[in-house]
């Protein structure tokens, strides 16, 4: 841990980065915090807990305000995949981000069912092999078509429309969110119109979702959202040969759809 602290300290003191986004211990609770040279002592409370906050999502908020500064950020495997996709979508400039890599423990990798529990460069922790587990998908695939529809409709009907799945997702960076487009999803209802609300989000995650699972962790209705997006991700890999979060220079085959969400023809007025 001291090695990690010293490494970040050097980055800050040398002026290589203006701030470091990590987690700080607050009365026994690790919470996101931007460490700076001005309060270098606070690095003593830098921690790496065994749960995650949406680091790259927070990073975007800071980058939007400080587009020219170089910022360090603590990344795990999933955050690093998000960085790759965010760079591709021109939401960040890779040159201005210094990822400080943390490899996840075996326990974490297993509980996240993570296929790649380590970032490109590791500054803390020991690399463990990824978990290849698609039992969640197999379970749904074993149902017949109408069974699958019932299963998903049953899941979606629990939705309380908190928008947590979108809010916590680093890859949900559109300025205008289609989920809030009243012509597509009627407002003011719980559950929101199903399955349209969830299908819109699933489609929008094609070519974007980096399979971090934060959405599912944030879902108060315990909907297995990640399985849904995983399926979309698999289809992208199988049919279009594209895997998100792998290579910064590989082109997203759906890129022509634009990064600001999809154009939706406005509903034709009945009048």
């Amino acid at each position: 841990m001291d090695k990690l602290r010293n490494y970040v300290k050097e980055l800050l003191e040398s002026g290589e980065i203006t701030g470091f986004l990590g987690l700080i211990d607050d009365g026994g609770h690790p919470i996101p915090h931007l460490f700076t040279k001005e309060h270098i002592d606070r690095l003593n409370d830098l921690v790496v807990p065994d749960f995650r906050y949406p680091m790259t999502d927070i990073l975007l908020k800071i980058v939007r305000k400080y587009p020219e500064s170089t910022i360090g950020v603590m990344v795990r495997g999933c955050d690093d995949r998000a960085l790759i996709e965010l760079a591709k979508n021109q939401k960040i400039m890779s040159d201005l981000i210094r990822p400080v890599g943390v490899a996840c423990s075996k326990e974490m990798a297993e509980s996240c069912r993570c296929s790649q529990p380590y970032p490109r460069e590791i500054h803390y922790g020991e690399k463990v092999e990824g978990v290849q587990d698609r039992s969640d998908l197999e379970e749904v695939e074993s149902m017949d078509l109408s069974g699958r529809l019932d299963y998903w409709m049953g899941q979606f009907s629990k939705c309380i429309k908190c928008y947590g799945c979108r809010n916590i997702c680093s890859m949900c960076f559109c300025d205008q969110c289609t989920l809030e487009d009243e012509t597509l999803v009627m407002t003011g209802q719980t559950p929101p119109e199903i399955p349209i609300f969830h299908l819109i989000r699933a489609f929008h995650m094609a070519g974007r979702c980096i399979d971090c699972g934060l959405c599912e962790e944030a879902c108060p209705a315990h909907i297995p959202l990640r399985s849904l997006y995983r399926k979309v991700r698999e289809d992208m890999a199988n049919y279009l040969g594209y895997v998100t979060g792998k290579d910064e220079y590989e082109k997203d085959p759906l890129e022509f759809l634009g990064s600001e969400g999809y154009e939706v023809p406005s509903k034709i007025d009945e009048t």
Binding site: K158, I160, C162, P220, A221, H222
Partner: peptide, 8 residues
Amino acid sequence: PLIASRVM
């Protein structure tokens, strides 16, 4: 809502 979450 977060009590409903526990009920679910």
